[in-house]
Amino acid sequence: MKTLLRMVPLLAAAALFAGCGEEPQVIKYEAGKYQGKRDTLPWDSAAYGGDKARWESDMRARIGNQNELRRMPAD
């Protein structure tokens, strides 16, 4: 009976310390850690065949095209 009563504060302490197990809320995604289905990289497509540099320069050109200010002649 005494052992049982001694367990009470121990269990209460265990319940209280459970809070210490709190993990950070937001997952920091780490490259390579995801175990699900693999997705191919955009420059590994048929159009680019793994040429990352060409894909990047093409993308940069398209992003730049969104800026109509650069298309205006300088005063």
Binding site: A15, G21, E22
Partner: peptide
């Protein structure tokens, strides 16, 4: 967190209770 521990603590508590 607390939900999981509540279940675990209750289970262990019952094991101890049964032992005693």
């Amino acid at each position: 967190q607390y939900g999981g521990w509540a279940i675990v603590v209750m289970f262990l508590g019952l094991v101890v209770f049964y032992a005693v």
